[in-house]
Write a protein that binds this DNA or RNA. Sequence first.
DNA 1: CTATGATTCATACGTTCGTTTGAATCATAG
DNA 2: CTATGATTCAAACGAACGTATGAATCATAG
Lengths: 228, 228
Amino acid sequence: MAEVRSPDTRERILDAAERLFMAHGYEGTSMRQITGEAGVNLAAVNYHLGSKEALVQEVFRRRLDWLNDERMRVLNAMEAEADGKPLKPSQIVDGFFGTLLRMADDERRGGITFLRLLGRMLTDPSEFIRAFFAHEYSEVIDRYKEALFKALPDVPKAEIVWRFHFMLGATSYAIAGTDALRVVTDWQIEEADATDRLDRLVPRLMSFLLGGLRAPLPQFSDAEAVGK
Amino acid sequence: MAEVRSPDTRERILDAAERLFMAHGYEGTSMRQITGEAGVNLAAVNYHLGSKEALVQEVFRRRLDWLNDERMRVLNAMEAEADGKPLKPSQIVDGFFGTLLRMADDERRGGITFLRLLGRMLTDPSEFIRAFFAHEYSEVIDRYKEALFKALPDVPKAEIVWRFHFMLGATSYAIAGTDALRVVTDWQIEEADATDRLDRLVPRLMSFLLGGLRAPLPQFSDAEAVGK
DNA sequence: CTATGATTCATACGTTCGTTTGAATCATAG
DNA sequence: CTATGATTCAAACGAACGTATGAATCATAG
């Protein structure tokens, strides 16, 4: 009885799917494109993965399992070192977002391709993709929120949850890097290389996130009188 | 010779497409779904709009034209009032993002449905959609960036451009409102109504954006220390 | 009224989609 | 060697896709 050994066909499918889903989205990528780019037979996806839905879930799972384990490991280590005292907000933000962003330099973990894929898919409309993320992320999100509650005891919990949401948005949009609105313009030479660009992004994004997290609490104008 | 009168068929198609693109994305929505929901014949889309690509562009154009005109109008009014002096960053942020967010209450402008559609589509991978946004937005983006440069003369321009990018990301993710990671949890009662939720979001988001915009400049680890 | 052009309609075209099938090929155990 | 199960392969399936066609229907001008 031969055992389920599965050569690199499966991995080549996942790699090709990762690239193509990043470039064209889930619905915009066909099985024929994937198997063509991977250099395998069309039927190989259904044989090794089962279906297109199972494929995209596996594309994320093989990266997110490591990422969220690492986030947990980092948080546990920081909390052990702090010995019961609250962590600094910057530590927590770095543990969650910094750990993600450092994946860009690690080609074994998908590198920048996976980061951009994740940034785009977090707002993907497909119901089963949203449900998958919610399940995959709930534990680590809860732990980091608790750490922030403890680090910022004077800020209402609801406020922290909102700001966590905003930080996620700024990060996922930044790493998606679509430049949909061509925000980065001519006189910014750069655009050298995607990885290189991310090196310069990370410290800037972290400053922005911390600035937003520690911003003064909003003033609610009575009767919702708009602004100003 | 009868003139091109076009009853409300065209509008009903655009309304249905707006809802369905918001819920299922561009590639995930079929012409048959759209015409079914609109209660019109399948061929009506190609007759009134030409093609699916032209349809989605018109869905955005009928809202974005007004939005970006309004943003221009607000900025011009503020600058006229300031009489050459720099504006306050909070004014500029409110002019750009506040004007967008206030569309949520204006059902004639698409309301929250259009806001969520826009938030999701800004990271859509389709090439022609990105090109469309870049063209549609470039003028107003440039004007607001210039206003920020003037308002924050001590901050390097590149830094402001990055932070504009981050603000866009936080905003589009927030209004997309997918809750992909179920950030808003149980003990937050709410979830009453989508519009109601947005009322509470706006002041919080504005505080966050301003906090991020005015955050201390990032410290670059030596080697390649870029700006500052 | 009739005539004209705008709009709607049922239907079909050709293509591409995700998936399945069954035979061919490969690797390994006995 | 043969036997067995894992893997690959070419081919096809039915369904759904975006689009096009030409006749029917409608509104209005003369």
